[in-house]
Amino acid sequence: MLEISSLRAGYGALEVLRGIDLSISAGEIVAVLGSNGAGKTTLNANISGLYRLFGGSIRFEGEEISKHTPERIVAAGVIHVPEGRRVFPNLTVRENLELGAYRRARARRSANLDRVVATFPRLSERFDQKAGTLSGGEQQMLAIGRGLMAEPRLLILDEPSLGLSPLLVEEMFELIRRLNDDGLSVLLVEQNVVQSLEIADRAYVLENGAIAMQGAAEALIEDEGLRRSYLGLA
């Protein structure tokens, strides 16, 4: 579904990603793990077209998308729920969700709105409130809900558990698993290694802009090196 090969990317003269190969098949949850500054967010920003890559290729369903504008990539069905949520603080919850269908699935907007509200009942209580007044957890739900409004074919989630209480983190991972059960392909970028590996099919570990480890999630979770560097376990 998504094929990334020898991707090099960064900002200005600074190269952050130094040759990444990564692929996602339909129906998979693929986790990209790594500490702060490993290049996870840069990877996402380049997939969704916010930055121009330095080199390499990104193909979605066989089509080269690395030179597409963000709106064309959204139209193709690659929906990126960014780190920091990036909801529209001055718009109501309803308007935020409606804008999720700005470029894609507009005809089915009201049906999808009902579906998203069913997934996140909490949002319906806040429907006419400005998004800026929501709590961090509610904003995260709104950001994911806004992404779902576009009927994604591939959903990119950047640090969805960041800043959430442990209980909400649990809920968030449960939700991702449920969305995937309904057939959605997910690229999950996380610092939360254990819980990500529990729901992922495969994972990549990013270190200093290169892939340090990759494989099936259940194999990685047993890996000694990974346990030492990321879990602090001997």
């Binding site: 969704s48 916010l50 504008t69 963000p70 709106e71 959204v74 139209a75 929906i79 990126h80 729920v81 960014p82 949520r85 990036r86 909801v87 529209f88 603080p89 001055n90 718009l91 308007e95 409606e98 804008l99 999720g100 700005y102 470029r103 894609r104 806004r146 576009a150």
Partner: peptide, 23 residues
Amino acid sequence: SDVGRAIRAVAKEKQGARLVGIN
């Protein structure tokens, strides 16, 4: 209107606007 919503969205959150496909 949708254009109006997009205008207000862009005013406060450019990056978010790009990610929902607003030019």
